[in-house]
Computed example of a mutant assay.
Amino acid sequence: MENAVTLRCGDGGKYTNSLIKDVFYRHFGNELLTNSMDAAVFDLNKERLAFTTDSFVVKPLFFPGGDIGKLAVCGTINDLSVSGAKPLYLSCSVIIEEGFDIKTLTKIAESIGDACKKTGVKIITGDTKVVEKGSVDGIFINTSGIGVVLEEYNSKPIIDGDCIIITGGIAEHGTTIAVERYNINIEGKIQSDCMPLNNIIEKLQKNLKYIKIMKDPTRGGVATALNEIAEKSNMGVILNEESIPIEKEIKSVNEMLGLDPLYLACEGRMIIVAEKQKSKDLLEEIKCITGCENSTIIGNFTCDIKSKVLMETVIGGKRIIGPLEENLLPRIC
């Protein structure tokens, strides 16, 4: 553990996990907290509930495909959705810098309201703080959410051969933030994939019993998310490089910037681990959902290796894909 917090401690990768385990789990860890993935799932009065919280510090505040307000709502809804829950209620707390433009604040609030209306989720509580100029960069938002876990869904142990589905092209949010932050002029349309995932859960409700686990690959990207699942399951992952959906423009920008798309955040994609025998049927059903047309099977789990992710490359070799270690792009969400 380092002596001081650095930016890489917040990128969602190896050093974030170390900070959480060495500081927070050490002092207030409990079974519900340490066993959680994207949300805590617990029983209350014969209902299974999911509860999650997240803070948003994205820079810039507005970007193609979204803004900090839409991102805050979708991010929390998605953490509930990948836990198999129907999102119901959110809290919304804002920390605002003195002198922040009211028109900009109104625009963000309108975006939050629109995202809630489109998903049927209600904000029922919140908090507002204003701090001295220079104490915060414009505005930071925290949202918490609660939902009811659907009866059809139970996370299950992963076994040899289980398939990995991704519900669309990767790295689109992280790349969009990089393009906007560094004022890169490029041809073609690049925009964040920021969108809610609860519609996927609703459409797949009858087939949720064939799904082992779900996760949204936000900070740390697909690579880090799969490493987390591999570690928890004590199974290995074999990825097929040719099968991973990446738009040409996204790939080109990342090559130019020296970034790896596998580690860049998605804000509207879901990783689904499904039974091998049902994975193709699930994939066809997912492809019919708006925004998921580019869904594909990108790999499978294996018992031949433990807690590691391997990539079968286009040239026929294999390479280890570890969790994010270096801070590629801070403040992406």
Results as ranks from 00 to 15, higher is better:
residue 176 T to Q: 12
residue 200 I to P: 01
residue 120 G to H: 10
residue 33 L to Q: 09
residue 77 I to Y: 10
residue 239 L to A: 06
residue 270 M to E: 08
residue 67 D to L: 01
residue 67 D to Q: 03
residue 288 C to Y: 05
residue 327 N to Y: 03
residue 290 T to R: 14
residue 47 E to D: 13
residue 45 N to D: 15
residue 270 M to V: 09
residue 271 I to L: 15
residue 12 G to M: 05
residue 236 G to W: 06
residue 122 K to M: 10
residue 323 P to A: 08
residue 126 G to L: 06
residue 267 E to G: 07
residue 213 I to K: 10
residue 248 K to I: 06
residue 3 N to R: 11
residue 120 G to Q: 11
residue 58 V to G: 09
residue 310 L to G: 01
residue 98 E to R: 13
residue 262 L to A: 07
residue 288 C to W: 00
residue 171 A to F: 04
residue 48 R to T: 04
residue 297 I to S: 07
residue 49 L to R: 03
residue 271 I to S: 07
residue 127 D to L: 06
residue 52 T to K: 07
residue 308 K to S: 12
residue 167 T to A: 02
residue 200 I to S: 02
residue 143 T to C: 15
residue 77 I to Q: 09
residue 105 L to H: 10
residue 302 T to L: 03
residue 35 N to W: 00
residue 202 E to Y: 02
residue 55 S to L: 02
residue 9 C to K: 00
residue 193 D to V: 06
residue 233 S to F: 07
residue 296 T to W: 04
residue 73 V to C: 04
residue 207 N to C: 00
residue 89 Y to I: 09
residue 114 D to E: 14
residue 60 P to Y: 12
residue 193 D to W: 09
residue 18 S to L: 14
residue 45 N to R: 11
residue 300 N to V: 07
residue 312 E to P: 03
residue 126 G to V: 04
residue 28 F to D: 07
residue 293 E to D: 13
residue 242 E to P: 02
residue 226 L to C: 06
residue 171 A to G: 04
residue 94 V to E: 08
residue 305 I to Q: 07
residue 16 T to N: 03
residue 278 K to Y: 15
residue 205 Q to T: 14
residue 326 E to R: 03
residue 325 E to G: 03
residue 119 T to M: 04
residue 313 T to W: 01
residue 304 D to A: 11
residue 255 E to P: 04
residue 168 G to M: 05
residue 11 D to F: 05
residue 322 G to R: 06
residue 131 V to C: 03
residue 77 I to S: 08
residue 68 I to H: 09
residue 189 K to A: 11
residue 172 E to N: 10
residue 311 M to H: 02
residue 262 L to F: 15
residue 128 T to M: 05
residue 174 G to N: 12
residue 289 I to A: 05
residue 151 E to D: 15
residue 15 Y to C: 01
residue 25 Y to L: 10
residue 98 E to I: 02
